[in-house]
Write a protein that binds this DNA or RNA. Structure first.
Length: 305
DNA sequence: TTTACTGT
């Protein structure tokens, strides 16, 4: 029983109250840990581009990028369309706003000729020099160069996995206890779900969330690292749109703090309403999806969209 | 397995 296992793990960790059957309520739930920012009314999105060049080459017919973005663009700021993922870049923080991936069971098939060890972290020269990070920013910072679009999701070609190592696809992440552990668990969950569906779309990105300080006011505060002052996000989100059967969709929205998370905490502790990510991120996720086709949200029928 | 660092 999933709920029972979750309850045991959490009470062992936190000893706190837990509401089964409603929404997640425990010490690690972002719902309890965060002071949400003031509501801002969303503006309608401009229409989606119909043809986007992939890898610098014009493609006849539907491009890979338009497949990846078929459920809508969260935004259009400094877009980059790579071979197997699409990224929007934030010049102020020197990391992405979001990245979007489209995964299918056959795209995850193991190809031994594609080797992560051949990849190198490198600056994204397509960004203006003022706004790009480099490896020295991360060196000695104490933070990992954490992938947003995970390398393990793009093993179809060497070029595709190479492109995930561009620093535009990295954010400073706590290494041990986060990137190499709980966040990695979430990435593995995505691949596991991919094997049990027809299409999976995943949007991932950093967030900078307000926190109450000693004077009782809310502040957005984040560290910056290196000479380029790369922002260290306070949180990361990952939103999954799972096409379980053709035309039948499920959504899972995760929000994790960029800090050491004990192994005992299940990833389900980090499920949040999608609106929470959208309000703080300043964008809408999977906006073009017909909500009538949505069967499950965060594991439950009947909404919590 | 996948995630990545520091020290050599």
């Amino acid at each position: 029983m999933r709920a029972a296992a979750k309850l045991t793990g959490l009470t062992a960790l936190a000893g706190g109250s837990f509401l089964v059957g409603t929404q997640v309520s425990n010490d690690w739930s972002p719902l309890n840990r965060l002071q949400s920012a003031t509501a801002v009314a969303p503006a309608p999105m401009p229409p989606m581009p119909t043809a986007v060049p992939v890898g610098g080459k014009e493609i006849i017919g539907p491009s890979r990028a338009s497949q990846i973005m078929v459920h809508g663009f969260p935004g259009f700021d400094n877009l980059r369309t790579f071979e197997d993922f699409v990224l929007s870049y934030d010049r102020r923080t020197k990391t992405a706003h979001w990245v979007c991936e489209h995964l299918t069971p056959d795209r995850l098939e193991y190809d031994p000729s594609v080797d992560r060890a051949k990849c190198a972290f490198r600056s994204d020269e397509s960004m203006h020099a003022y706004f790009r990070s480099d490896n020295t920013d991360y060196k000695g910072s104490g933070y990992d160069r954490g992938h947003l679009a995970a390398a393990g999701n793009h093993r179809r070609t060497q070029n595709a996995v190479d492109q995930t190592f561009l620093l535009s696809n990295m954010s400073p992440q706590v290494g041990k206890g986060f990137n190499r552990d709980k966040w990695n668990d979430l990435e593995k969950h995505v691949r596991k779900q991919t094997k049990k569906c027809v299409n999976l779309y995943v949007i991932t990105g950093p967030l900078y969330l307000a926190k109450k300080e000693g004077d009782g006011n809310l502040y957005v505060k984040y560290k910056v690292i290196g000479k380029n002052q790369v922002a260290v996000p306070t949180h990361f989100f990952k939103s999954l749109l799972i096409e379980r059967r053709p035309g039948e969709f499920e959504v899972e929205n995760y929000l994790m703090p960029n800090e050491v998370i004990p192994d005992s905490v299940p990833i389900s502790s980090f499920l949040v309403p999608q609106e929470m990510i959208e309000r703080s991120g300043g964008f809408l996720l999977f906006e073009k999806l017909d909500k009538k086709k949505l069967k499950l949200v965060n594991g439950k029928a009947g909404g919590w969209w």
